[in-house]
Each structure stands twice: as C-alpha cells, then as structure tokens.
C-alpha cells in the first residue's frame, strides 16, 4: 500500500471535499481518500499494483480541481 498527499485548490465547500473522497474511492485500487477542506489537502491510500499516481491525479483534474503533489 502507498500513501500520497496532494494539495487540491479551488475547493468551494466541504461538499466538494466529500465528493472528491467519494469519487476517488470509486477508483479500483484506491483504499481510502481523505480530503481536508480547510487545509485543502487530500491524502490517498492506494494499491500501486492496481492503480498509479498518474491515474489518481488525472481523476482529480477531470473533476476540475488543481492538484499539486506535496
């Protein structure tokens, strides 16, 4: 298992934070996604054999969020 933290900007509300978690956890290989709205950070725990970092970032960008790896 691997854990990665992103800085996700342009989150508009706590609902967006929840939506990000729900969306990422729908991806095969993502075990847990946890977004903190106030700190604008998403921590993702994933199985590198099933999904890579690129796909997670692509998913976030697809949802129209700006992402930076911390």
């Amino acid at each position: 298992m691997k854990t990665i933290t992103f800085k996700v900007t342009n989150l508009e509300c706590t609902s967006c934070a929840m939506s990000i978690d729900f969306d990422l956890e729908d991806l095969k290989g993502v075990v847990e996604a946890s977004t903190n709205y106030a700190r604008q950070r998403t921590t993702v725990t994933y199985d590198p054999e099933l999904i890579d970092q690129k796909s997670i970032i692509a998913r976030l960008k697809n949802l129209n969020y700006d992402v930076k790896i911390i």
Binding site: T14, F22, A38, Q40
Partner: peptide, 20 residues
C-alpha cells in the same frame, strides 16, 4: 481569505462513509 475555511465544519469521515 483562506482563514475563513476554518469556519465551515467538515463532517467526520466515519459519518460521510456511513452516508455513502
């Protein structure tokens, strides 16, 4: 200002998972 983000109470993960 980003400081005002702290005024919004974010539900704990356990609650959002239950709802999901």
């Amino acid at each position: 200002h980003p400081l005002f983000r702290y005024f919004v109470i974010q539900p704990p993960k356990i609650v959002t998972r239950l709802i999901r």
